[in-house]
Write a protein that binds this DNA or RNA. Structure first.
Lengths: 354, 354
DNA sequence: CGCGCGGTGGAAATCCTTTTCTCTCGGCAT
DNA sequence: ATGCCGAGAGAAAAGGATTTCCACCGCGCG
């Protein structure tokens, strides 16, 4: 493989000069020399060694993205947004699916650190785990010390997202919409409590109910894994625990999709028997049957914006926390409670009171 | 940041010895020295500089995956398979969405080459374009020269996939299933002709019809982009061109999903008015309404297997072409032609003859 | 008693670019 | 005419890890 000294030799100049031409340095180089070098580079099919360059500058043209599962449309959308922006700036994007396992996350961050990645973006929520949070934190400060940017797109141990959405408010809005439709017994399928984002969303659910003067029935809140199986099981558990509920809010779309599937199997009609809502508006949420009411998140924009923040940090400018707009979208999985009357009558007073 | 010489100094040994301990060399090092070095490394939070190591060995612990769009579940599944296997071997995975633009693909491969990636896997089909095929090919041979492995998971200019599925046979089987159901006028929404995989699948369609003694009506074959919009438009065009067709085979699931959507809007009932089939069985294909009949591809396994082949190549062993099993899965979007009788009578003889 | 060898550890070269630091030379101002 | 300045080009160091070669020590064997 041709190196820059080969190019220099062929062009009859020193490696220093060749480098200046080929790497876009500001150092003056005469036009003739310049074109001689360019011709030589083309002739030899020269591609600069990014490792050598990176070694020198303590920075590889790489941005790492830690996701929970690239297969989850929520994450692939974000990654795409990052990719689009990063590609334009000449970076390569490394994605790592941690499956929400802290050790995996640490191992990826360590690899990224060894690689001197220019930025790390955490697309998914932080995972509560003191030991690993400390270890990951150490890697992160080391990375910041060599000049890398670290950006969180979801809440984590290191605080709220640098670029993100208002999970609390958004979930509160969905639940409020359910209340406005006439629902009073609203179940909640939450995510695992060790996921920071899940805690935020559940907070939203609770606050909306409180604000509507509806008491929280502990039996109406279950936690489940953040995927379809979790949603299916959670929804079924909820319905068995209290057959009178008329609506279920899920902490994310995948869970809602699972709930829809399970209800279809069980012969529970949505939204006639129970309304279901999701969260995220992943591609496909509009194509389920019935189509899913959910909160739309600008996922791709979140990714783009996250990368832009990283660039801002790299440029030495102060990043400022940014909240992206969400939007409630009511589709076919929600309606007025068709059995509302019956339920309203049957509810024991004790449960209605706060 | 602590370097290996810092570790060596703290441990009171030479960098050479420290390296031998820390990089798993075979060179003998006494137990006491070994633990002194390990203690020093831990003490200094030492993480080896992958760039320096890579520069020396002309190889970075990176595998690049070129996909068409990471947002497409077809690709994210494959990437996940690669990731799972690659992570276990200590590699980082770079994904690049080319959007099927040859120039983008070349730019990514060039970046990967500059980075001395250990392997490149092409997850998507090759794109017919003489100029870029030549340029990409040049980068690829350069990469192979420094010891990288190149693996294709789909047909390309460089021949059939090293690890892949039999697209021709699989599509023929789907169409054969449609024929077995009683369909005679079967439309085909193909992919763009400049995608190698699209050509293969269309070949399957044609061969199944020929084998069944059904002539190919050129009006029953349209090409469309490989996404939902393409499928929606293609299906509608087909139906307008020949309202008597009873089934439509799509070249991939995304197109079939689009067709389902469009037909729902148009009030065309699936499968009563027309049966629809897809190809790939992406996650979600079973959750459409009606659920999609398609050919199941072991996508994740394809990714895993592709990476394993790459490792085999790296180990110097001869890779052998591998075909993964596919499986026809008939769900709710296909049925006997309910209007078959009428259609059979109406078809002009000229169109039935080959 | 001397030689050679296995077990250990160190010195130094190497990978490839970028970036000071120098140096030269022509031109311009004093 | 001399000094200075700027343009242009080169020499050499640096960045961090790995890996030959060597060297040394102690021990076993002849």
């Amino acid at each position: 493989m041709a190196s820059i000294v080969d190019v220099a030799r062929l062009a009859g100049v020193s490696p220093a000069t060749a480098s200046r031409v080929l790497s876009g340095s500001t150092h003056a180089v005469s036009q003739v020399t310049r074109s001689r070098v360019e011709a030589a580079a083309a002739e030899l099919d020269f591609v600069p060694n990014a490792l050598a360059r990176g070694l020198l500058k303590s920075r590889a043209p790489i941005v790492g993205v830690i996701v929970h599962d690239i297969t989850d449309p929520y994450f692939s959308e974000i990654v795409r947004g990052i990719e689009d922006e990063a590609e334009a700036s000449g970076y390569l994007v490394i994605t790592s699916s941690s499956d929400r396992i802290p050790a995996r996350e640490e191992s990826y961050v360590r690899l990224l650190r060894g690689m001197r990645a220019t930025a790390v973006l955490f697309a998914g929520s932080g995972i509560r785990n003191a030991e690993f949070e400390e270890r990951i934190g150490r890697h992160l400060v080391a990375m910041e010390r060599y000049g890398a940017a670290v950006v969180h797109l979801s809440p984590s141990a290191r605080g709220p997202a640098l670029v993100g959405v208002d999970n609390v408010a958004a979930m509160a809005e969905v639940v409020r919409a359910l209340v406005a439709l006439g629902h009073r017994r609203i179940g909640y399928v939450g995510g695992p409590e060790w996921l920071y984002v899940a805690a935020d969303r559940e907070r939203g659910y609770r606050s909306a109910l409180a604000e509507a003067g509806i008491g929280i029935d502990p039996g109406l809140v279950v936690t489940a894994s953040f995927d379809q199986d979790g949603g299916a099981d959670g929804a079924e558990r909820l319905l068995r625990a209290d057959p009178r509920l008329t609506a279920i809010a899920c902490a994310n779309d995948l869970q809602a999709l699972g709930a829809l599937d399970r209800f279809a199997q069980l012969g529970v009609s949505v939204p006639d028997d129970v309304s279901v809502t999701g969260f995220d508006d992943i591609p496909g949420a509009s194509r389920t049957s019935p189509s899913l009411s959910t909160v739309h998140l600008p996922l791709r924009e979140l990714g783009r914006s996250g990368f832009l923040q990283a660039e801002k940090i790299l440029a030495g400018r102060r990043p400022h926390r940014r909240l992206l707009a969400h939007e409630i979208v009511l589709r076919r999985s929600t309606s007025k409670p068709r059995r509302a009357a019956r339920v309203a009558v049957d509810v024991p007073a004790a449960l209605v009171a706060s």
